[in-house]
C-alpha cells in the first residue's frame, strides 16, 4: 500500500469512528434496569474482593523512614520480648540441649542456688533442692558449649563446684567453675 492509499484508509476509519450512532432511547433505561436487578454485591463479597485485589501503596522515602522508625520504636517500648527473658527457657527448647545435673554437698546450708552464664548469673533463678543426705541438686538443660557457674550458699556465699574445673580467670574477685557440654 502506497502513502496516498494509506491516508485514504485512515480517513475512512476516522470518518466511521466519528459517525454518530443512533441508539434507541429505551436502551439506557433497559441497561440501568438490568443493573438495578442485580443489585450491589454483599459487603463481605466486596471486602473479600478488596483483599484479593492487588493494591498499590505509595509512600515518599521520608514517610517510609518515619514508618520504619515508628515500627522499631513500638517494638522497643513494647513489653513483649522475643527470645531470652531469663536465659533458660530458650535453651531448654533447643533439641540439642542436654540435661545436666549439678550437685553440691552442703548439709549445713539452709539454701543453695545455681548461678551462671546460662541463667544470666541470676542468684534466684535456679534454686537447688536438698536431698535426705544433705546434698543439694538441680538439673539444667544446656546446649553444647562452655559455661561458667558457681553455687550461692545461704544467699551470699559463692562456692565453686569442687567436682568441676575452676575457671582460669577471676575477673570479679571470686572463683567460678566451668562445664563444657560437648557436641555429640
Amino acid at each position: 500500500m502506497n502513502e496516498s492509499g494509506h491516508n485514504g484508509l485512515v480517513e475512512r476509519v476516522a470518518h466511521e469512528l466519528k459517525r454518530s450512532i443512533k441508539i434507541d432511547p429505551s436502551f439506557d433505561e433497559s441497561v440501568m434496569a438490568e443493573v438495578r436487578r442485580h443489585g450491589k454485591p454483599a459487603m463481605w463479597v466486596r471486602v473479600i474482593a478488596w483483599w484479593r485485589r492487588p493494591q498499590q501503596l505509595s509512600l515518599s522515602p521520608l514517610s517510609m523512614a518515619a514508618s520504619a522508625a515508628v515500627l522499631i520504636l513500638a517494638v522497643a517500648v513494647s513489653p513483649v520480648r522475643f527470645g531470652n527473658p531469663d536465659g533458660v527457657e530458650p535453651i531448654a527448647e533447643d533439641p540439642a540441649a542436654r540435661v545436666i545435673r549439678f550437685e553440691l554437698d552442703a548439709p549445713r546450708a539452709s539454701s543453695v542456688t545455681l548461678s551462671g552464664d546460662f541463667n544470666d548469673w541470676d542468684l534466684e533463678a535456679t534454686p537447688m533442692t536438698r536431698t535426705s543426705s544433705g546434698e543439694w541438686v538441680t538439673t539444667v538443660k544446656l546446649v553444647p558449649g562452655r559455661y561458667e557457674y558457681t553455687f550461692v550458699v545461704d544467699g551470699d556465699k559463692w562456692v565453686p563446684d569442687p567436682a568441676a574445673p575452676p575457671s582460669l580467670f577471676d575477673d570479679f574477685g571470686g572463683t567460678s567453675s566451668t562445664i563444657t557440654v560437648p557436641e555429640v
Binding site: D120, W121, G173
Partner: peptide
C-alpha cells in the same frame, strides 16, 4: 557473652571500672 560478663560482675558486686 558481653552481657553475661556484665551481669556476672553485677551479681558479684563488682565496681563499675572492674
Amino acid at each position: 557473652p558481653l552481657i553475661d560478663k556484665a551481669l556476672e560482675g553485677s551479681s558479684r558486686g563488682a565496681p563499675h571500672d572492674m
